[in-house]
Nucleic acid binder design. Sequence first.
DNA 1: TTAAAACCTACGGATTCCCGTAAGGGTTTG
DNA 2: CAAACCCTTACGGGAATCCGTAGGTTTTAA
Lengths: 222, 222
Amino acid sequence: MFKKILVVEDFDSIGLGISAVVQNKIGVDEIVTSQYCDEAYLKIKRAKQDEAPFDLLITDLSFEKDYREAKLKGGKELVEKLREQGISIPIVVYSIEDRRAVINELMEIQKIEAYVLKGRNGLKNLEQALLAIANGDTFLSPELKNSVEKKNLFELEDYDISLLSNLAKGYSQSEIAQDFKSQGMSPSSLSSIEKRINRLKEEFEAKNAIQLVATAKDLGLI
Amino acid sequence: MFKKILVVEDFDSIGLGISAVVQNKIGVDEIVTSQYCDEAYLKIKRAKQDEAPFDLLITDLSFEKDYREAKLKGGKELVEKLREQGISIPIVVYSIEDRRAVINELMEIQKIEAYVLKGRNGLKNLEQALLAIANGDTFLSPELKNSVEKKNLFELEDYDISLLSNLAKGYSQSEIAQDFKSQGMSPSSLSSIEKRINRLKEEFEAKNAIQLVATAKDLGLI
DNA sequence: TTAAAACCTACGGATTCCCGTAAGGGTTTG
DNA sequence: CAAACCCTTACGGGAATCCGTAGGTTTTAA
């Protein structure tokens, strides 16, 4: 099925658990592990150059900071970088992250092969995911499937994301207006920004801007 | 060293990682695992009754809810229950929780033998912890030792959390004031709430309430 | 081409938030 | 006992926001 797998996970306990399952249940001989995204990226590049590429990547999303400087802050950045460079390795993301916005982007835009939710039965699902990929299918953890439909309620433009991010950074509406003006973004008037925030508030059923930004954070939009 | 160990951890990947280390590095034959605190408690009681007690407990602190009803919500409750019942099993807590208040209570009041922080080198520390306990010592993860002194940076009270949560839910300051009044919380005046929010804004270097709630979300406080 | 719709912008009043000042009560300190 | 201090509460002015109205431009549809 798979011969050479790279496991990227910062916590050693989880990395060891993954390795054990991949080795014993799937029967993979060569399992390489890394606790850092930057290192993982280099290993993938190097393996490809040596014409002994990995045929599967299993990665976490969030990584704790430590003394090392990290260019790739997390699994999302790692995946983006790989796709950007045209490296077509199959990818399984194994994370505790359960927000649809994040997961959908990975599945639909980055085209990862599987998204497995860490949890009580995470490893069982991971096993199933590997079997599915070997069959040419994709895999999504069953806990997440129920919430798939509710995703297209409202399509946010980059403009809205930018607006929400600026609010979250503490800028006032008029500051944002000036900023947008100086960047040549449109619309940029205070009035329009007010209107847009109002639309977002209605959309997310938020009473005020504070709640709006809070729910945007919850949904992983910003 | 140890002959019979109980590992309590909800995530299967971590449980497997712990088991692997305890088995291979420490050389324990009999490792029992449980994904639920209630079940773990019953197993300990039963083992004692059968005169084949566990001689070590390794437990997580936080457990995800699922369909099962849980009397013991987490590792803290499990430890308290055991101590309350006079069961003197050595305990290692293995958790991602790094707040001093929680850890100090476990170490000093509940008298657990070791507190190991989950992280990149969690398993290495766990191994050291087991060796220390076998020697009759206690163990605290090295990352935590430095932070013993600087724990009083800023302690958020439940009051502050409640305040931030209410803001995130979209309530205005005067609404929160009324709510606090009706609940008999103190302070409850609009003025005091303003003051407290101001203090929080300074503490988190936030320009306004929006940014304050956004950073509180980022820090996982609410 | 023209009418309708949607959008950007501007303005003004009402509300809320922000921030400094200050009074009153309780505790600690000299 | 009084002074100093901390905390709660109150008040007021200025800033930011909320919300409706309205005029001008662009886009869409008939």
